[in-house]
Design a binder for these strands. Sequence first.
DNA 1: CACGTAAATGGACCATAGTCCGGTAATTAC
DNA 2: GTAATTACCGGACTATGGTCCATTTACGTG
Lengths: 204, 204
Amino acid sequence: MEGDGARGLPMLEPVRHERADAARNRATILIAAEGLVAEQGAQNVTMDRVARAAGVGKGTLFRHFGDRCGLMRALLDERERAFQEGFIRGSAPFGPGAPARTRLIAFGERMLEHVEIQGDLLAAAENGEPGARLRHSVYAAYRAHVVLLLEESGYGGEAGYLADVLLGALLSELVLFQRRELGMSQAQLRRNWGELVRALVPED
Amino acid sequence: MEGDGARGLPMLEPVRHERADAARNRATILIAAEGLVAEQGAQNVTMDRVARAAGVGKGTLFRHFGDRCGLMRALLDERERAFQEGFIRGSAPFGPGAPARTRLIAFGERMLEHVEIQGDLLAAAENGEPGARLRHSVYAAYRAHVVLLLEESGYGGEAGYLADVLLGALLSELVLFQRRELGMSQAQLRRNWGELVRALVPED
DNA sequence: CACGTAAATGGACCATAGTCCGGTAATTAC
DNA sequence: GTAATTACCGGACTATGGTCCATTTACGTG
């Protein structure tokens, strides 16, 4: 049914060439949005203001980023990419090379730092329709990584379930609540995360 | 500063007498909202439509329930109250009388059932500003209960932290995702919940 | 280079959550 | 019973996320 081009190579990119003006506008928008977020906080930035600040129409904004969460995600993208790169190909214990349980602890610690630095932006990016964040590919990537580590560690139970629970403990909404509302320190969260993982995952 | 009536009894209700028309309107609104939710699903019910269906103005709606989440919560209120009543004063193992760990497992199982039945409504009620659900008194009540059980069980770590993690595993957004998107069965979730608690909480 | 096509654009438009306030009706004091 | 008070009412209004489409602009081709 799909009209594959029957060329030699299957196309890896959905878009052959992003038009120059589109690329320029995307960059302009991201810079404008970044500035607004920096000066007023992610929560107070409206799509209208971003569009006006970037000097483009609202339609352009939504064409490029889909929705508000998409824009926020795009702002996080660079860090996000570095984060994923880190646990896939970085150096141990975050990257490969250390025992699985150790890596899992390192994963959580990095995630806590990530939330510390990008907290509001993360919260804004995850705050869409119910369940949207779970269906997104970023969650899938994290989940797959945790599942892999759990299986590697020899965990006997259902790794997918435990991955959901563990990622739940790192959810930005929760971590921000613990930090700001409950007054837990970052060190406290790190310690508790470590204990949690050690209690659940076998040493290998 | 507060003008306490200096009568004999401290007032237990913030409002001395809800005016008859107000009470009538609240009831009418709840009935109308219940009907709309039943026939179109919580997600598709707008405040405007509820107001029109109830034959009241929008202002009345917001005066009574604060915001959309408040209305959804009010619709859940009866079940919610029964749920809380159950784990505070009900019969074992959900209520008092059983070992703490057993009660905790029962708590989770009831919560999973609760999500099964009231899923969409719960999701709608929890879907507000980031962190709002965590700051709400319902979350505080659940958290306090779980903390109590953990301490009673002789859990050595920080009970508050573990309570957040455990409640995260029961979050309606997550459970609905696991049921609908991941295709996990309710039995599977029950089993995994039980294993999770048994792995983390000492038998007592 | 001229041209045709497909993509990008922008801002008018829509839907919906939430606010505000002049008017009104229920309660209370006398 | 009547007047004063107080709480309630309703719908017009605002703010904001998101859609639509007629118009414009870049790009590949002859």
